[in-house]
Design a protein around this nucleic acid. Structure first.
Ligand SMILES: [Mn+2]
Ligand SMILES: [Mn+2]
Ligand SMILES: [Mn+2]
Ligand SMILES: [Mn+2]
Lengths: 216, 216
DNA sequence: CTCGATTTTTAGTCGAGTCTAAAACCGAGT
DNA sequence: ACTCGGTTTTAGACTCGACTAAAAATCGAG
């Protein structure tokens, strides 16, 4: 019913809503790397299909149906990622991009088999929660790695998953969900830190630290 | 490089070439359930991309590149089917349709992992050979089930895979690749047969028998 | 409250892929 | 060699999704 393009817009809108705002044309356009004019056109199509409510010059918000569709897509995406890393043993920095295509092609039967085979996982390989079959998104309380004080210990909850090079670096450092880290030193000026993780000491810049969140 | 639509045309052309003819506009149109006008337009696009050679009013034939692309697609399709039945335990009558979408979305890394996990299978669940990584299609010599004489024993090689209802029926009868059958009785008029298969006697119509081939 | 900057929408174009209807072509049969 | 029937191509239209450039609306600073 919804085309691949429509699904990608719904996801972008969902992500922006999730950050608190009511997304406007410009934000969605930027998120998808598409022109503002294209976005206006798509907003109308989505509104026509009842997937968003759209006010001219006023942005969009997902309807119940639109949100349900977006959550289904996220479930497909994250279960696909899990499958690719856990069962196919593909590197965690590559699976996001693959899942971005598979999420549009995997039918429900396949997705639910994945869930079964993988033991109903609750998060994707990058730590983000997987929406349940009935469309609820489990909440995970996190805080920035940068907010952990010197001497404190914390457990990595999730990492930013869009930048493959960054992910590969995090993987080499051992900064994956579930890793226990202790802050050895922190530089308030630029946010860079020295951590103990997995027995060895590692150095992370403010930018890298900003891509990691720990359990609250 | 090649769109999903182009890939579907290439596959249709491949299948028709495989049957011996040089496919024309009408045949390809019918195979894909599309108008002849659309097919003419696509023939031009494919020729433009160097994937087929096209003569007006004279049909098409796959170029080296076109054939390689088609064989890659068939490899993806059949390995995906194997994966869906063997690892995900989905019914063999449903996987063809799912694979028809996945074949366009699965990247090489994933396909080769499938091949590894499944032990480099040589055929899809319906018995059709899987092209090798280097683009060769293993030849399997078969003959129609209908040509087996009364009293003879034969091993099912492959079955027609496009009709889901028929496939389900074949599955219930136990007529899957590898099954050993003995012909008990044969009605020359309409080709219907009585077979012994898996210890029990089954009755197959001429049409059903026509969907099954045995090893020569 | 107004003016200028920014954002959004509109207008117009494009390519891919589809359709229908009309024209052109080809090949057989007389 | 003509002609008729079927096939193929052309012509013209449509949808979806994208673009650029121009117009319109909104917002913020003075
Ligand atoms: Mn996507
Ligand atoms: Mn992820
Ligand atoms: Mn297909
Ligand atoms: Mn098959």
């Amino acid at each position: 019913m919804a085309s691949q393009a429509m699904e990608d817009y719904l996801l972008a809108i969902y992500r922006l809503e999730d950050l608190g705002r009511r997304p406007g044309t410009g934000e969605v356009a930027q998120e998808l790397g598409v022109s503002a004019a294209s976005t206006t056109a798509m907003f109308k199509r989505l509104a026509q299909e009842g997937l968003v409510s759209y006010r001219e010059y006023g942005g969009v918000s997902l309807s119940e149906r639109g949100r349900a569709l977006a959550l289904g897509l996220i479930r497909r995406h994250r279960l696909a990622e899990r499958f690719l890393t856990d069962l196919l043993d593909l590197p965690w920095e590559g699976v996001h991009e693959i899942a971005d295509r598979l999420e549009h092609a995997l039918p429900p039967e396949v997705i639910e088999r994945f869930a079964g085979l993988l033991g109903e996982p609750r998060t994707c390989p990058h730590g983000h929660p997987i929406p349940t079959r009935d469309g609820r998104l489990p909440y995970i309380e996190v805080r920035p790695l940068g907010s952990v004080e010197v001497g404190e210990t914390a457990v990595v909850a999730l990492v930013e998953e869009r930048d493959a090079a960054l992910l590969r670096h995090l993987g080499e450092l051992g900064l994956k969900p579930g890793a226990r880290v202790r802050v050895v030193e922190r530089e308030p000026f630029d946010g860079s830190m020295r951590l103990e993780c997995d027995g060895r000491e590692i150095l992370v810049s403010g930018r890298v630290a900003g891509a990691v969140a720990v359990h609250a």
